[in-house]
């Protein structure tokens, strides 16, 4: 992956010299097998950029923090959709953004890597050998077969090569999706549960929600400047609080279901909500379920870049309300 990182640094340096004010990419993280979002503002800072199978973050949401700046952003195939979605919704001025696409052979599940690497082993280089990532360390090479070690979302990914980008780096990535794996396996498993068990499942996972709102903050579809759940009007003012600030099960249900409906049809499937959750709530089950229902209801309908829920046609046979 050395070549990809090299060309990323070169292009970033060039863009920063040519007028891009902020280049949003990845740098090495402080923890073993990690990366972090990185913001280069000077050409020499481009030397810190990396791309490897730990660059799991979707960086697109950061673009809305720089409305007046000329920006560039690194996107993988699964992140790219968020740029067009946010531009379509006029949260981003696409003209000001250089979208730099990187082909992606899948992201490694960090926990699986840590379980197999000896502690405190520094990863010196990552090599992609077909269906395997090889981590080079001072203690030798550690191969990680993709099929057994990629993040769940990557095992069913068919967007390995980003589309709609301004600049595409590296070589075309080979698809990694396991054709035998049903992307909706998890959703179907929950759907198949008897009502009581289904309720117990959601009670359990929502019951441990901390309401830290990391899922909202990271989500590129959660683009409201003020969230409906953030209107701090206390009860004595008879204000409309959608959820109590206190953590409790009904309000955690309320929060997650409303959030899922707000992003329905707009979720681009990056699964960042699920990755950031400190208590591992399987939020993609909700997002995938809604995507599945939308597909079943409107799958055949012509839709613009904004998706079927935003499409409007005067000859629509159904009433608006």
């Amino acid at each position: 992956m050395k070549e990809l990182t090299e060309s990323l640094r070169q292009e970033a340096s060039r863009l920063l010299r040519e007028g891009v004010e902020v280049f949003i990419g990845y740098a090495a993280g402080s923890l073993q097998a990690s990366a972090r979002p990185f913001f280069a503002t000077r050409p020499e800072e481009a030397a810190e950029l990396v791309f490897n199978p730990f660059c799991v973050h979707n960086l697109v949401k950061y673009l809305v923090r720089f409305p007046d700046k000329r920006t560039a952003v690194v996107v993988k195939g699964c992140d790219g959709g968020a740029v067009s979605r946010l531009a379509e919704e006029r949260h981003l001025d696409r003209e000001k953004i250089t979208v730099v696409g990187v082909p992606c052979g899948g992201m490694l599940e960090r926990e699986r890597v840590l379980a197999q690497l000896p502690p405190a082993t520094r990863i010196e280089a990552v090599e992609e050998r077909g269906n395997t990532y090889v981590l080079h360390t001072a203690r030798g090479e550690y191969p990680f077969e993709k099929k057994a070690n990629l993040a769940a979302k990557c095992l069913v990914c068919v967007r390995n090569n980003p589309v709609g980008v301004d600049l595409l780096l590296g070589k075309e990535a080979m698809p990694v999706a396991d054709p035998e794996r049903d992307p909706l396996e998890g959703v179907k498993a929950v759907e198949a549960l008897p009502a009581g068990e289904k309720a117990a499942f959601w009670d359990r996972v929502f019951g441990r929600c901390l309401r830290c709102y990391a899922c909202r903050e990271v989500c590129p579809a959660c683009s409201c400047t003020q969230c409906a759940f953030e209107q701090a009007v206390p009860g004595w003012q008879q204000g409309a609080m959608w959820v109590e600030k206190a953590k409790n099960l009904p309000d955690s249900y309320h929060y997650h279901l409303i959030r899922a409906f707000h992003v329905a049809g707009r979720c681009t499937g990056c699964a960042e909500c699920e990755r950031v959750c400190p208590v591992r709530i399987p939020l993609m089950l909700l997002n995938q379920k809604l995507a599945k229902e939308i597909e079943a209801l409107f799958g055949g309908a012509p839709a613009g870049a904004c998706g079927p829920l935003c499409a409007y046609a005067p000859d629509d046979p159904d009433q608006f309300a």
């Binding site: 972090r36 979002p37 990185f38 913001f39 950061y62 923090r65 901390l210 309401r211 830290c212 709102y213 990391a214 909202r216 903050e217 990271v218 206390p234 009860g235 004595w236 609080m241 109590e244 600030k245 206190a246 950031v276 400190p278």
Partner: peptide, 24 residues
């Protein structure tokens, strides 16, 4: 720049003790 502005670090911190008081 990279901070999400979420509450993870404070909610998992054993010493963070800020609280809010609200009526329902």
């Amino acid at each position: 720049r990279r901070c999400l502005g979420c509450g993870i670090c404070t909610y998992v911190c054993p010493t963070c003790h800020c609280f809010d008081i609200t009526d329902v």
